[in-house]
């Protein structure tokens, strides 16, 4: 499955607009752009999709560390 398609499916969830108050224009429509987003929820999902789709075998610890380091610094 195309990673952009997956990403778009996730960010279409109502939490993104309802809880995080994001407008359509805030939401990038591909992973590459989302990875440089400054919105934590968008970037987190982008990292998750990007890492998993690029490297199916990535282990959970590595992936978590990557995400948590980013979040702990930027949230």
């Amino acid at each position: 499955m195309n990673k952009n398609k997956i990403f778009k499916k996730f960010v279409s969830h109502e939490l993104i607009k309802d809880k995080y108050q994001l407008e359509e224009r805030d939401i990038p429509n591909n992973v590459t752009r989302a990875l440089v987003s400054e919105i934590p929820i968008i970037k987190t999902i982008a990292i998750l999709v990007d890492e998993l789709e690029n490297n199916q075998g990535i282990n959970d610890i590595t992936l978590y560390n990557k995400i948590s380091i980013y979040l702990n610094k930027n949230i």
Partner: peptide, 12 residues
């Protein structure tokens, strides 16, 4: 906040 955000990712 990290905990809360990751919880939302799970929900999503």
């Amino acid at each position: 906040k990290t905990q809360e955000l990751l919880n939302d990712v799970l929900t999503i």
